[in-house]
Structure formats: C-alpha cells, structure tokens
C-alpha cells in the first residue's frame, strides 16, 4: 500500500516521462509524429496483402477484421518487446536518484497505451469511411477491455523489465516470444478457425480473450461474451499481482546490478 501511495505522489513524474517519450520519440525524423499512424498502417498493408490477396482466406473485409485486432496487439507487443529493457535504458537515472522504481515500467506502458489511443482514432475513421460503422451498444465495452489489456501489459512489463535487469537474455528472448505469441493469438485469424483440440491452449493465453473481445466490439459490433471478459479480468489481475510482487523483490538491487 505504501508503494501505491508513493507512486501516486510521483504521478507528475509518470506524466512527464510519458510526455517526454511521446514527444521525444520521433524527434529528428522527417515525418515526426505521423509515424505513430504510418507504422501500423504499413503493417496492416503487408498483412492484408499476404493474407487476403495471396493466401485468400474468405473473411469479409479482412483488412478491418485484422485492423481492429492488430492495433491492440501492437500495444501489447511493444509493451513487452520494448518494455523488457525499459529499466536498463534508464540505468543512469535509476543508479543515481531515488524514485519509486515502478514509475519506469508504468510510464513506459502508459506511453504505449497513449499511442494505441491515437491509433484507435485511425481505426474509428477507417471503420466509418469503409461504411462498416460503429455500434454504440458495443462501444461501451471498449474502455473496459482497454483497461484490462493495460493491466495485463503492465503486469507483464513489471515482471519482464525487472528480470531483465539481472538477466539480459530476457530482452533478446522477448522478440522471439512476442513473434510466437502473435501467431498463437487470434490476431490474423479468428478464434473460430482454431482446431477444437487446440482450443484449451488458446484459452490459457490471456491475450486470446482480449483480442476476441476487441474484435467482438469493433468488427462484429456486438457486446463481448461475459465469459470472455471474466477470463480476461482474472488473467490480468493475476499477472499484475505476480508482476508487482516480483518487481518488489527485485527492485532493491537494481542500482547494484545496472
């Protein structure tokens, strides 16, 4: 509890770091902040080319089907991929000044989250322009699933970033994990395409429920199933608690290990 109070006291630091990250990220590049939108759009283009033009899959409006899941996935994967090294990157600060260490992963994930919010604006625009439209009844569930995903990403980042301080391999290993994770999560295909036998394994993947819920809300324009939401919530809370506890244990020796 003490920690939470302290993190709250340092809220301005979180805002500052998020702001610094968002503003500083594309400094010096010609297109600047536009990269926030260009990068996912280009990825969307590549996946659509491969999976709907070359390997025709018969899913209606595949680019929309993919897009509504890809943006949430990119938030999660960048939290994991980049988040692993987030404390190492701030080694100078960590070694020389005191602040609640949780602030670093917290602001990293938050900055990725803000990125997703901005990208979602593009998603909405595409949905509207394509004539697919949005359903208000479904949209009210969107904030809920976003918070769940945020909690999940935060828990994972707390866990991974603190271990990476001691074991740098984790950071390199994560890029492979993230790639495998993406293919084993129904991002590029629907959960209904998964063979019956493998379904239990997919249920163990916390991101499955999250992505399914996003697609329900944005693509199928329907409220996600209660069971999907509940699974996601339980996973998210468990991961956050584990991540927090591990971080708590490991953070005491950050300054010495860095």
């Amino acid at each position: 509890m003490q920690v939470l109070k302290e993190i709250y006291a340092y809220r301005e630091m979180i805002f500052s770091l998020v702001k610094r990250d968002l503003r500083g990220r594309y400094k010096g590049s010609a297109l600047g902040f536009a990269w926030t939108f260009i990068s996912p759009l280009l990825q969307l283009g590549v996946y659509t080319l491969v999976f709907s033009v070359i390997m025709r899959n018969g899913i209606k409006d595949y680019y929309l089907f993919l897009f509504v899941a890809l943006i949430p996935w990119l938030f999660f994967s960048s939290s994991l991929g980049g988040g692993a090294g987030c404390i190492r990157q701030q080694a100078d600060m960590t070694k020389k000044i005191y602040f609640p260490r949780e602030v670093i992963p917290l602001s990293y994930v938050t900055s990725q989250f803000v990125n997703m919010l901005l990208s979602l604006v593009v998603v909405f625009a595409v949905l509207l322009v394509s004539g697919k439209g949005l359903s208000i009844n479904a949209l009210i569930y969107l904030p809920i699933i976003m918070i769940i995903e945020y909690v999940l990403a935060l828990g994972m980042t707390l866990l991974i970033s603190s271990i990476t301080v001691y074991l740098r391999d984790v950071e390199y290993f994560m890029s492979i994990i993230v790639m495998a994770w993406q293919f084993l999560t129904p991002v590029m295909y629907g959960i209904d395409m998964v063979p019956e036998k493998l379904l239990p394994f997919f249920k163990l993947n916390p991101m499955s429920s999250v992505i399914v819920a996003y697609r329900d809300i944005l693509y199928y324009k329907q409220a996600p199933q209660l069971s999907t939401l509940l699974t996601a919530i339980i996973f998210a809370i468990v991961v956050l608690v584990v991540g927090f506890k591990v971080f708590e244990r490991l953070k005491k020796h950050f300054a010495e290990e860095l």
């Binding site: 340092y10 500052s16 610094r20 000044i97």
Partner: peptide, 20 residues
Amino acid sequence: GFHPDMSGRENIYINASIFG
C-alpha cells in the same frame, strides 16, 4: 532525465517531477 531536444522550461518540469 534531461532530454536534450526539449526546452529548458520543459526539462525543469521533467527533472522536478523526478524529485517527486
């Protein structure tokens, strides 16, 4: 936490926020 590309004023906010 100073960011070279940001102004002195903005860096005051960042740096001071690190002090809590």
